[in-house]
């Protein structure tokens, strides 16, 4: 339990750093945050154009390093808080769930092989969903964890449940009630893509955020 607390604190600090970094004007190429507390070497790249709109990429590739060319996730041009004010939650709305320009429309978090640790590039996404839960206490979500096909099936059930628990732990730190989230581990039983290569495996190692009524 201790490690989880430390990890989520670390994650919150990191996401705050990201928000600060992204709010700066004319950040030319990239802001790179690298995890030091984890065994993988994830890096996250955020680019900001002159107009001040922030964009980022959610990577879902076999490599831990995420660059624009390798991305599998969609671009998003939204970060929580209008005018980059993290305390402003006007865009954190149920309508945002179905707005492709809103980060809330993104519901998949990808993982490293045999790991349940959250990659830093997903902190903003997870925190944004957590804020939505805080804002609507009757809202409920399922966090459905999945694993790739490698390794044994019941171990993968446990691994995929640990992944959904990791997401839940970070969300709870943002304020919603833990009863708003249900976790489930499907293991390798419901792959999203066929194929037996690193690219397919990455797409299948995921947690899907599913809102009960949306």
């Amino acid at each position: 339990m201790k490690t989880i607390t430390i990890k989520s604190t670390f994650a919150i600090v990191l996401s705050a750093l990201l928000l600060t970094a992204c709010s700066g004007q004319n950040v030319k190429e990239s802001t790179t945050g690298s995890t030091t507390g984890d065994s993988n070497n994830s890096t996250v790249t955020n680019t900001t154009n002159n107009g001040g709109a922030t964009s980022g990429t959610l990577g879902a590739d076999g490599n831990s390093n995420v660059t624009t060319s390798e991305q599998e996730g969609n671009d998003f041009t939204y970060l929580p808080g209008a005018n980059n004010d993290p305390n402003n939650t006007q865009d954190i709305s149920l309508a945002g769930l179905s707005d492709p320009n809103n980060l809330l429309s993104q519901r998949v978090i990808y993982f490293d092989y045999d790991k349940a640790a959250i990659r830093p590039e997903y902190m903003v996404l997870i925190n944004t969903h957590a804020k939505l839960l805080s804002k609507y206490p009757s809202l409920k979500m399922r966090l459905e964890g999945h694993a790739d096909e490698r390794g044994s099936r019941e171990y993968n059930v446990a691994l995929s449940e640990a992944r959904s628990q990791s997401v839940k732990n970070i969300m709870v730190a943002q304020g919603p009630s833990s009863t708003q989230m249900r976790t489930i581990g499907y293991g390798e039983e419901i792959p999203i893509v066929r194929g037996h290569n690193t690219k397919s495996w990455q797409k299948n190692r995921r947690v899907e955020i599913k809102y009960d009524d949306y």
């Binding site: 339990m1 044994s152 019941e154 171990y155 059930v157 446990a158 691994l159 640990a162």
Partner: peptide
Amino acid sequence: TTSSAIDTE
């Protein structure tokens, strides 16, 4: 078992 790790199978 009572570990904080994954115990299964």
